[in-house]
């Protein structure tokens, strides 16, 4: 068995809200890898997953999965989506409203396997909800059903499009654990689109960073994101929410992750801050107080 599962070299013209963009990517993914595709919205992350799954055709290039050609513009090969054994989890879940949770999972199976469905329902804690329809489920529950459904057909490759985007932070961590458990249990090669850095670090050993349709970095998340920054300083990216004058100093209210931080800055006319600015919050290594959360 080869170690390389996916070999891709694809180009496609995209028409996005910010104008024309050419998706141009060449990469390979090893068997059993869990890879995240990271980048701002509108760089073609979803399009990449759609091309791999066959929902969108690339303009040119080729795509080889598990030794079989799925797309080759030169040979005019484009295997239809339904002939590609992928599990695709849509950003908007795309659960079938006319079917119950269990029926959604059963529909996905080419060969009925009630045992596998039972296993999935248990793994994602959906057993109590199996006779409910998607419309009555919460966002997090729907997301779990979508993930379980993508796995129900026993795909050779799992494509997750922002699987945890709509989940509140508390529950997100739990679902990330579930994805990890799932990956460990089934060893399935997974491509995960994300724009959440902590998620990339937690879930994947490899990240492909995209900018304007191209791969700009590819490697271990620590190497990719932290390489030039391990200088003993803490750097946090923050957004300015509010600027207030208090006596002679200026107080900025910053959003760091999900918490609000107030920082006093000198009234420097060279550096004017306004709400909406993206800033870097730097602290020296000996300054922060670190406590383990129990």
């Amino acid at each position: 068995m080869e170690t390389v599962l996916i070999e891709a070299d694809i180009r496609k013209k995209l028409f996005t809200a910010s104008g024309e963009l050419t998706l141009d990517m060449k990469f390979s993914v090893d068997r059993g890898e869990m890879v995240s595709v990271f980048g701002p919205s509108g760089v073609g992350k979803t399009t990449l997953l759609r091309i791999i799954s066959g929902l969108t055709a690339a303009d040119e290039g080729y795509l080889k999965v598990d030794g079989e050609v799925w797309f080759d513009s030169a040979a005019r090969i484009n295997r239809p989506a339904r002939m590609r054994p992928v599990g695709y989890m849509f950003q908007e879940y795309a659960l079938f409203p006319n079917m119950t949770v269990k029926e959604n999972l059963a529909f996905a199976q080419p060969v009925k396997d009630p045992h596998h469905i039972k296993q999935l329902l248990e793994l994602f804690e959906l057993d109590m909800l199996k006779y409910r329809r998607p419309a009555v489920l919460s966002g997090g529950q729907q997301q779990r059903v979508a993930l379980a459904r993508a796995l129900a057909r026993k795909p050779g490759l799992l494509l997750l499009d922002e699987p945890l985007s709509a989940i509140d932070p508390e529950f997100r961590s739990k679902l990330q654990d579930e994805i990890l458990t799932m990956h460990r249990r089934y060893g399935i090669t997974t491509l995960l689109v994300s724009h959440d850095l902590p998620e990339v670090f937690k879930l994947t050993g490899r990240v492909i960073v995209m900018e304007e349709g191209r791969i700009v970095k590819d490697g271990n998340p620590f190497d990719v994101f932290a390489a030039n920054r391990t200088s003993g300083k803490v750097q946090l990216v923050a957004e300015v929410l509010k600027v207030e004058m208090e006596d002679i100093i200026r107080v900025l209210t910053l959003l760091v992750g999900n918490s609000l931080v107030k920082v006093a800055v000198c009234d420097n006319p060279e550096e004017q801050y306004k709400p909406g600015d993206r800033v870097v919050l730097v602290s020296k290594a000996f300054n922060p107080v670190i406590q383990k959360i129990t």
Partner: peptide, 15 residues
């Protein structure tokens, strides 16, 4: 109907 409904069905191997 949203496009993703039919697309989801195709990715699940349905004609």
């Amino acid at each position: 109907l949203p496009d993703s409904l039919a697309e989801a069905s195709y990715t699940l191997g349905k004609s």
